[in-house]
Design a protein around this nucleic acid. Sequence first.
DNA 1: TATGAATGAGCCTTCATTCAT
DNA 2: GATGAATGAAGGCTCATTCAT
Lengths: 242, 242, 242, 242
Amino acid sequence: MRFRQSLDNALPGQRGPQAATDQSVCLGRMTKEVGMSRRASNLPAPADRGAPAEEPVRRRLLAEATRLFAERGFESTSVQEIVAAAGVTKGAMYHYFGSKDDLLHEIYARVLRLQMERLNRFADAGGPVAERLHAAATDVVVTTVDNLDDSKIFFRSMHQLAPETYRSVRAERRRYHERFRGLVAEGQRDGVFRDDIPAEMVVDFFFGSVHHLGTWYHPDGPLTGKEVGRHFADLLLGSLRP
Amino acid sequence: MRFRQSLDNALPGQRGPQAATDQSVCLGRMTKEVGMSRRASNLPAPADRGAPAEEPVRRRLLAEATRLFAERGFESTSVQEIVAAAGVTKGAMYHYFGSKDDLLHEIYARVLRLQMERLNRFADAGGPVAERLHAAATDVVVTTVDNLDDSKIFFRSMHQLAPETYRSVRAERRRYHERFRGLVAEGQRDGVFRDDIPAEMVVDFFFGSVHHLGTWYHPDGPLTGKEVGRHFADLLLGSLRP
Amino acid sequence: MRFRQSLDNALPGQRGPQAATDQSVCLGRMTKEVGMSRRASNLPAPADRGAPAEEPVRRRLLAEATRLFAERGFESTSVQEIVAAAGVTKGAMYHYFGSKDDLLHEIYARVLRLQMERLNRFADAGGPVAERLHAAATDVVVTTVDNLDDSKIFFRSMHQLAPETYRSVRAERRRYHERFRGLVAEGQRDGVFRDDIPAEMVVDFFFGSVHHLGTWYHPDGPLTGKEVGRHFADLLLGSLRP
Amino acid sequence: MRFRQSLDNALPGQRGPQAATDQSVCLGRMTKEVGMSRRASNLPAPADRGAPAEEPVRRRLLAEATRLFAERGFESTSVQEIVAAAGVTKGAMYHYFGSKDDLLHEIYARVLRLQMERLNRFADAGGPVAERLHAAATDVVVTTVDNLDDSKIFFRSMHQLAPETYRSVRAERRRYHERFRGLVAEGQRDGVFRDDIPAEMVVDFFFGSVHHLGTWYHPDGPLTGKEVGRHFADLLLGSLRP
DNA sequence: TATGAATGAGCCTTCATTCAT
DNA sequence: GATGAATGAAGGCTCATTCAT
């Protein structure tokens, strides 16, 4: 549940009640649609008490699939390995998911929803654009590091999605980039950022770095996600100085 | 080794901008035609005598494999597809390559050799460290863009390599990073670069951006590789300002 | 047993041609609505008391199974498809039927019962044997055409029955053939039919034609079942002329 | 090889050289396209001496598939069973046939080609139409009985063919019927056959009988195929008497 | 050098059926 | 009566690889 904690802690302060409503609604939908991604940890999940078991099999399948796809790639992971890891049979998997591809697709949906949601909060917060950009950049690193498996899967396996799904994922991703680019462009208009480099390229530059965290970052290495995030944000902001 | 010769021509310092343009064109052709790694055998390569046809079948196989791996991924490309694209039979492929994995491995070897070679030349050139870093950074972008398929394959399919090969590729890659990091550290020692961010992280930050060129750069888009390279190098140098 | 009542009305002799037309309409509806075989259980069927809803779920399952088996074959029709078409769940199906095979078996039982019943009535009617044979032959065509799905299933899927069931269906079928053959043999003994061809073969000859109606007859084609029946009967009687 | 013998014996006499050429050309094509269907007998095939082995694996697969499809139906026969019966592995089967459906399709192609060829010869022979029809009718029974497995498969499994293949098989079958119907219509025009029953229906009537031979005829029963053929032809001609 | 038939392991998926509720 | 999650056994098919020629 590190995830929910991150959410509670890291969001830019003081939202009103409707924001809270948004969040819970969205989380509520998440449960129904893709499973909560509540890591296969053995910590007791406090939310489970009182609520029905909310499909632990489905959740376990998604968790194990995420882990295995990140570890050896989508194509090199067999359905048999996934269900064995989740402790169920193949039939059970096909009860919850239409196909192996569907499993992958749900992982993508989960990542996309989460990241967009977080970015929106940071971008919508008040304060100078440089601060908002720094906070958003730090946060995306922290979130990525907290969900490193998702991140590893994202670019490595995107081409395995069905064409239609692929397009929709790319479109959603593009929306995300555009939101982020909006912050850069805003700073350029305000004169606080250099404007001799297209904002779009700055975004591609930065997110390349972020997406490759999975190739070198280790949770038990010397640096916390927060530290890496701050460094990355510093580099980004530094590179934007006029 | 036509390859090295081309390289010799393209080195920093000696020529004007239009020569640089030639260079990238040349690199582009190189990728298609050369197929540097002449099989991991220790047999003398008969092709070297008088520089004749040098195994066009082998070259074609490598070229088509590169194209297909980049297009659909290693696991989703069958040997049958590769040999069909190259216009030969399976037997021929197994005559030149020990396995499908071997094919992938040779692609990696080619990339690694090329990039290390180029970096060395730029790093060893004279002049202020900032200039050398800027030139090396620009060049790695240009080279990546000229060999975009290799770049797409590199990170997406690394985990498909046999463990031993995987380790050796990583080690070689690390050497490459260390060489690059050396430039950053040198600038930090000299006080021309900020030193509050570990040089290692700066390198990871920058190469993340470079490796993701394959996900958004298109050769027929508005920007040339050189332009992107300069922007990227500017961003890197900008982020390192004290 | 609404069924038997309908049958009672449609018997030879008692009514004019327009009644015959009614009959075929009625048989058509019967197939859709009746579902004669009220489960192979020996429990008293509560539906018989007062003739109430008599298990509409069961009836719907049988009707949809018949339709689907005829359309795509027994093996290519999944239980899931059947229950979806009937608007119920799998559990419901397994409540009414022991297995998918059981469903098929009940379809056979229904067909066998119906055809034997009708043949008996025609064979037992009075009049010259040639007339009785002609009437019976016409009727079996009409009945077949009115229940074309049953007919399609009959021979195509017979080999899917459990061995025991298979034998019992064959035996019942043989009894049917024997009854029909009796008419032919009677005519041969009486000298009204040629006797240089075994009666048994005449029966196989004729029923081959009947069973293949499903491969070419279409209810909305130019010919009514009655017309086809008369032609077929004419051909049969014609071929039997001494 | 009973088959080829039948051909040699039963054809209406005295054809010129071009007919013989047609036949061998056609047989030649057969070998290339669908395998010879030379029953899985252990008699030495005289034609094989001197000629290359002409794909005995393919031939065996086709023979065993035919046998098994006839015995238990297409859907109830697994590829594993077929290859086990043929003494090869699945891979070998998929080397020669694109799919299980393809196997079925080739069986159909073989049947269609053979029957059309034979019918043409009888229909094209000289003599009164009644004689030609009688000979053709007898022959189709003999051929059917000699290839009873093909016949069993034909109607039972037709609906398993891919839609396109299905259509092409039906079209070919229709051409066959039309050729046969031509003979009936000719006799009707000449006044030697009754014309109060559509020729088309007479054909459907007769071929229904023929196609159902598989449900009752046994090679080791009391009647030879020739005898059944003559009886059937007698019945057909009898039913057509004015 | 090069072919292509053949292998055998493994893959994704389907499906009839069961059973706790 | 009825549900629907879960099972487990196949099923069709693919594929990297081998080997006699």
